Amino acid sequence: MALLHRLLGRAARIVWRVTRPRTIGVRAVLLDPAGARVALVRHTYIDGWYLPGGGVKKGEGVTQALHRELAEEVAVTGATVERVLGVYHNRREGKDDHVVVYVARAGSDALHGADALEVAEVGWFALDALPESTTPATRRRIGEFRDGATGSGAW
Score class of each variant (00 low, 15 high):
Ser133Tyr: 13
Arg17Glu: 10
Thr63Glu: 15
Val87Gly: 09
Val87Arg: 13
Gly54Ile: 08
Gly35Tyr: 00
Ala129Ile: 07
Ala39Ser: 10
Val101Pro: 02
Val74Lys: 06
Thr80Lys: 14
Val99His: 01
Ala129Lys: 12
Ala137His: 07
Leu130Gly: 00
Thr135Leu: 13
Leu127Lys: 02
Gly53Thr: 00
Gly61Ala: 13
Ala11Val: 14
Arg68Trp: 10
Asp115Cys: 14
Ile24Ala: 13
Ala39Trp: 01
Leu111Arg: 03
Thr134Gln: 04
Tyr88Ala: 04
Leu117Phe: 14
Ala36Thr: 11
Lys58Ala: 09
Ala12Glu: 08
Leu3His: 12
Ala137Ser: 11
Gly86Lys: 03
Tyr45Ala: 06
Val122Asn: 05
Val76Leu: 07
Leu117Ile: 13
Pro131Ile: 03
Ile24Ser: 07
Arg139Glu: 10
Gly59Ser: 03
Arg68Cys: 00
His89Gln: 11
Leu111Ile: 01
Thr23Ser: 13
Asp47Phe: 11
Thr138Pro: 03
Ala65Ile: 10
Asp128Ile: 12
Arg20Met: 07
Leu70Gly: 03
Ala79Met: 03
Tyr45Ser: 06
Ala114Arg: 12
Glu93Tyr: 15
Asp32Gln: 01
Gly61Tyr: 00
Ala75Asn: 10
Thr80Leu: 15
Gly94Cys: 04
Gly9Arg: 13
Gly53Leu: 05
Arg37Asn: 15
Arg105Lys: 04
Ala11Glu: 12
Asp109Tyr: 08
Val81Gly: 05
Met1Leu: 06
Ala28Glu: 05
Leu85Pro: 08
Arg20Tyr: 11
Gly55Cys: 06
Gly59His: 10
Thr138Gly: 01
Gly86Val: 08
Arg20Thr: 01
Glu72Ser: 12
Arg22Leu: 13
Gly25Ala: 05
Val101Leu: 01
Lys95Asp: 08
Leu4Met: 11
Asn90Gly: 04
Leu66His: 00
Gly55Asp: 08
Ala137Leu: 09
Arg42Trp: 06
Leu8Ile: 14
Ala129His: 14
Val99Phe: 05
Ala126Thr: 12
Tyr50Val: 12
Gly54Thr: 09
Gly48Asn: 00
Asp32Asn: 09
Glu60Cys: 03
Ala71Arg: 15
Leu127Met: 04
Gly123Thr: 09
Ile24Glu: 15
Thr23Lys: 15
Leu4Gln: 13
Val99Thr: 11
Gly113Cys: 08
Thr77Gly: 10
Leu4His: 04
Pro33Val: 03
Thr135Ile: 06
Val81Met: 04
Gly61Val: 11
Asp109Thr: 13
Arg27Pro: 00
Gly59Trp: 11
Val15Phe: 11
Arg139Asp: 02
Val18Asn: 01
His5Phe: 09
Pro52Glu: 02
Glu60Asp: 12
Val15Lys: 10
Glu60Phe: 10
Pro136Asp: 07
Leu127Glu: 07
Arg17Ser: 04
Glu73Gln: 12
Asn90Trp: 15
Leu66Gly: 09
Val100Gly: 01
Glu118Leu: 15
Arg139Leu: 15
Val15Asp: 07
Gly123Asp: 01
Ala2Val: 12
Arg20Gly: 00
Val26Ala: 02
Lys57Asp: 14
Trp16Glu: 08
His5Gly: 08
Glu118Ser: 12
Ser108Val: 04
Val100Leu: 07
Phe125Glu: 02
Arg91His: 14
Asp128Phe: 10
Ala110Tyr: 10
Leu127Gln: 06
Val74Thr: 10
Tyr50Gln: 13
Gly107Arg: 11
Ala75Asp: 07
Trp16His: 14
Glu73Met: 06
